[in-house]
Design a binder for these strands. Structure first.
Lengths: 197, 197, 197, 197
DNA sequence: CTTTAATCGAGACGGTACGTCGTGTCTTAGA
DNA sequence: TCTAAGACACGACGTACCGTCTCGATTAAAG
């Protein structure tokens, strides 16, 4: 009945609106201009909201950035299974590559790494964000495990690291493109080792 | 004879000393307090060198940080080969893990990611830095290839990504510890796939 | 009724107070330490006001000095007329001499000359300041003219220059004291020439 | 015999040359760009002489400016007497007005006033400079006195102040032009009072 | 004609001030 | 009640000039 209102504590609609305007602008700035521009001053200029209003909702720049980033955690989009684990992995990893590029992940990642390095309370946010990226891979592995295509004792999280790790390393850490060849190698290698046929 | 001395242009020793003092302090600050503290003002306070002197050597904060980071690129330390590729890889990856921790790589990485995200001219620095970390792995692979333990057509750089990528992803991206198990998996998987016995 | 209040725009009292603190200190510095010390940095140190606050009110050092000087323009103090033009002039010029000394006019004049020489927009300030010094003389002359003691066609401004000019020249330009003799000569000469008995 | 050589101490010709180059440039800067530009840095840029060389000859900026100004003290140019004191005075004062303008006296005066206000040792320089301007007037008066056209008890220095003072006040202090009318008034007034016919 | 000493060029260095920008706190008015 | 508007203290930025200080490289004069 009042289910949703009890979470929100009957927040003033004006407040909600302003918060949203600010967050939208912050997301925009983060994705398009980098974390360095997610600034009370900049958001105020951009939105017309007063700088003091921003500080009323977030005690400081860090917490605004934190919440901005959490807005950008990729929601889990299930990929339809093709039946073959190898194909599924290929598809998932290709999808990951696609999302890294189209979602403009680099600036968000940069913000996370930067803030995490000075404030450990950002680490969970960073983990959540990266897990959001890897999640589909883990899901595919778990499905395969359920179907018996992977040994039950396999730790799917570790396995996902083996699969997605090289891609993320290549793109976010090395700042280089992910070649099809890399996806192939990663997948083939994994299947050969763990695939139960 | 005087070939190499002519590159250095006989720089005033005082200048060299002051530059070194500044860089040392900057490295210190970067490693222990984070890139945000690598500031002309802060370095000046810390070293007693005048702020203007710093600006004489580096036009701005970014270039000081850039050079500071380049000071921290891990020099290549050759690991003695044990004869067995598997053992070599285990050792090398364990060494990588050790260096990640003892070298306090996270703040450096954070600085690189941060600066690269706003200024693409930092990307090469970032690549150089990460390659400096991975280099031993590549070396081990090339040695094995020479010995015939790996197929000649194998691209050692890609292979190194497959091996070191998951570790770096785990430590720098996921902010989590590298378990022995991960090193084992990565190594075994690689050997099984490519090892020519 | 609210006519005059609308000019002032109901400025925040704190702001008014801070502006005044700054100006007071600037006047002090100008009079006692010279224009060279009227510096944002110096005023900030002296008053405890932040340097940036000063820059909020005055875009640069020059405009602060300009306003400081305008604070020091001598307000017109009417001298009671003795009935005799000669005595009035003696009194007024003696008063001028007194004000030159007690008001510590030299540093203000120095500032004006200095700034005017590089920025013509200071010239009006300089004129206003000097006219503020001469004003009583002009007033005395005008009163005498009204009483018929001076010919109606006499240009009082020029006449004031003839009277006050030598004094100011002696004190501000030649950096020498003004002897009673000089005042006497100037007055006598003027009365003999223009006095209508 | 060695009269002149003993003053100059057989100075190195290179030194003399460099000193002259610097002073020439300093005069130029003082007259055309104002005292604020008479700077070691600026002179060095302008002349190609090293900044350190300037400091070798003058301990600081002030002493360079001081010497620069002394170069600009107007040499006494005798004006031919017309026989009539009134005409002589008219000519001399008109000449003074001319020199004020053509000699570009304002920036020099500004420099003198500025430096004198912070360092009393500049006061004599300022007096010398202004006396250089007034000197012809005094000379004319003394000649007239000699001829008996002025009473012997007249203090020519004071008289010169009465005559030249208003002009200098008008031009240097009030920053306004000197009208012919002012010269007339000053002269007539003086003659009427002191002229012995 | 060379050698030796004065002088110069070049530029690092420690300072001080500049004017700008951003932060986070605060107060006052207005919707 | 919450927002707008903006002053304020703080502190870093990057710049300009000061006056001091090495260093080599020129140049001048003396041997």
């Amino acid at each position: 009945m009042t289910d949703q209102s009890q979470e929100e504590e009957k927040e003033n609609p004006r407040t909600t609106r302003v918060r949203q305007i600010i967050l939208d602008c912050a997301c925009d700035l983060l994705l398009n201009s980098g974390a360095g521009e997610v600034t009370a001053t900049r958001v105020a200029q951009e939105t017309g909201v007063a700088r003091t209003t921003i500080y009323r909702h977030w005690p400081d720049q860090a917490s605004l950035v934190m919440e901005t980033i959490d807005c950008l955690v990729a929601p889990h989009v299930p990929t339809p299974s093709s039946g073959s684990l190898e194909t599924d992995l290929q598809n998932t990893l290709t999808g990951l590559r696609g999302r890294l590029v189209t979602r403009n992940v680099r600036p968000v990642f940069a913000a996370l790494v930067d803030y995490s390095s000075r404030d450990k309370s950002f680490v969970p946010s960073q983990q959540r964000f990266v897990e959001g990226l890897i999640q589909p891979t883990t899901t595919v592995l778990e499905a395969a495990q359920e179907r018996g295509e992977l040994p039950a004792r396999l730790d799917c999280a570790v396995a996902a690291t083996l699969l997605a790790g090289p891609l993320i390393h290549q793109y976010l850490v090395m700042h280089e493109d992910i070649e099809d060849e890399l996806i192939n190698q990663v997948t083939t290698q994994f299947i050969r080792l763990h695939g139960t046929r």
